[in-house]
Design a protein around this nucleic acid. Structure first.
Lengths: 342, 342
DNA sequence: TTGTAGGCGTTATCAA
DNA sequence: TTGATAACGCCTACAA
């Protein structure tokens, strides 16, 4: 382009991204003409020359092959994806959406500088594939035991303790956990925090394992939790609070309570760790924790970019969690007025 | 690479993508070594030469600047994004997630061959920006009056009629529409179909406009609908069925009915046009239509690819819609057994 | 049937 | 401070 408007190509390049080599006047002149002509450097050529693509990959679980391992809120993923794209763009990078790969070669067809992998599990089939790529990697979720050293996550332990404290403060004396039977890292940490908390508070830890076999939708999760909760709540020494550790479980528990004639929050408190829209449409709405997916996404992008710059970013990054207190755990006297803080 | 393993670079190129120039033996030999070495052509170099990027852009509404115009289910978007990425990959293209642009130049920094724009509105600020780009464009949603000639959408009219027929068949005689006050194309078509249907069925059309000012979350939508429904359902000649034409409205209507002591479905039927997870956690679950976001996404990608090949794809593509009948509109005698078909 | 060479737009190096 | 030039890897027209 701009060779035509005054100087040589090299000078244009230096003027637009070089450090201090060009004359200030020349630079402003070039900048102006570039703006006027709407000129932007060709990414393909730049990539060819530099070996970098200015593109980050976001590896999502692909719906068709969703296994129980990858049961995650779509709403969560959507927020992550858009926020990550936004963060990448602000740093002059593009974000490529990658379906879960069968074949590593498939991933290389559209080269990226680094990859963010969402919620890896300990035996995640995507991990060996990624390892073979030799690309910088950041996990959005637990780092699964050193397999992915750089990761961004919320604090499972602190989240669990916050919720337990809140339930106890609202009068719960027998808090029971609804635990997904899926071997997730997040679950493991939460349960362990629960046991620890029980030890501190002279509380007998009781957990109900909810089988996830064959479940692949939010409704399925709710149904599974519903069955488990019916059983648990019919027992003679039933709990007076349920903490649901998986999407959908809160809705299922709420349904079970209603069918058994238990009033929430009077007879039973219900809370869930990860917030989701459905928790606001139950009656009463269910307390849950906001893990700030957008914030996590931005942190993951920043971490990856910093890795690409050759830095050793602080890792892991632990992002904050905010409890959304709703009516399902609100035992304050005035039950009629709007009690939800969301 | 492969020059080292037998022949010249040109021959490798011809062997891997050329027509018939090379000897069959040489070709298989080259293919084999390429596979063995995991060789894939460098996209940057290929793009530099060909001018194409093998990359499609998906333009999403960006959360920070979500205006009432772009209030859409995040769940919907997530499904669209992942399905589109998958379809693009199968056609050897990558899918770039694009935040809504302020500046057209920003979009050009990461060049794409074409763009899918989700749910454009008639006065969508993204459209003039896109027009200035001169790129092939496909709308995922209504084509907004010729502005975007190529589009993929579900059939608003047929969806509305199906729901009205279903409600009437379940005994509704005074069906009222809850209409978002947002100037959406989909809304306009639905309302017009409703009026037409009323004419055919000797039914007095009544609609309640629900103001969306200041609302930007699903909860906000539900609250707005809740207020409107309270008023409507308290009127002397209250409707016996509500058809909600916006996300969140079904949940809001359901809450209003409960507060007024109206039983669903006995005293009031409730249905919503676009399905969402929350509709399954209300009591009772609410009937809605599945617009098959994944199918729509795939159709949009196919249409865009076909445009890029210089074809005139059939446009618009109208995708099918499936009614999910749930308890909120089920007046069959056996009310106790599980009535939901989902 | 295959090798050779030029050029796509950038940036880094070197010379002026 | 600036201009010329080579090279990044690929495709393709042309020569062998």
């Amino acid at each position: 382009m701009a060779a035509a408007c005054g100087v040589s190509v090299g000078t244009v390049s230096y003027a637009l991204n070089g450090k201090g080599r060009v004359d200030a006047d020349t630079r402003t002149r070039i900048r102006e003409t570039a703006d006027r002509l709407g000129y932007v450097a060709n990414q393909a050529a730049r990539g060819l020359r530099s070996g970098r693509t200015a593109t980050l990959g976001l590896l999502m679980p692909t719906p068709p092959q969703t296994s129980s391992r990858e049961l995650l809120s779509l709403d969560w993923h959507s927020q992550v994806a858009v926020a990550a794209a936004d963060a990448a763009f602000r740093a002059d990078h593009a974000l490529l959406l990658l379906p879960a790969p069968q074949d590593p070669a498939q991933l290389l067809r559209h080269p990226v500088d680094g990859i963010i992998v969402t919620d890896p599990a300990r035996d995640d089939p995507r991990l060996p594939v990624l390892a073979g790529l030799g690309l910088p990697l950041v996990a959005l979720g637990q780092g699964v035991g050193g397999l992915v050293p750089n990761y961004v996550t919320a604090d499972a332990e602190s989240t669990t303790r916050q919720m337990l404290d809140h339930l106890a403060q609202q009068g719960a004396t027998r808090i029971q956990l609804l635990v997904p039977d899926a071997g997730w890292e997040w679950t493991r940490l939460s349960v362990s925090a629960y046991r620890y908390w029980c030890g501190e508070h002279d509380h007998a830890p009781t957990t109900t394992l909810v089988g996830l076999a064959g479940t692949s939708t939010e409704t399925g999760l709710a149904d599974a939790a519903h069955r488990a909760a019916l059983q648990t709540l019919s027992a003679p020494d039933r709990p007076d609070a349920l903490l649901a550790l998986c999407l959908g479980f809160g809705v299922g528990a709420s349904r079970a309570a209603q069918e058994l004639g238990l009033r929430v929050p009077d007879d039973l408190l219900i809370a869930q760790d990860l917030d989701e829209p459905s928790l606001q449409s139950t009656d009463p709405p269910i307390t849950a924790a906001d893990m700030h997916p957008r914030l996590q996404a931005k942190a993951a992008v920043d971490m990856l970019l910093s890795l690409l710059d050759g830095n050793h970013p602080p890792s892991p990054v632990i992002t904050p969690v905010d409890l959304h207190l709703r009516a399902s755990t609100d035992r304050t006297p005035t039950k009629d007025s709007a009690p939800a803080v969301s």
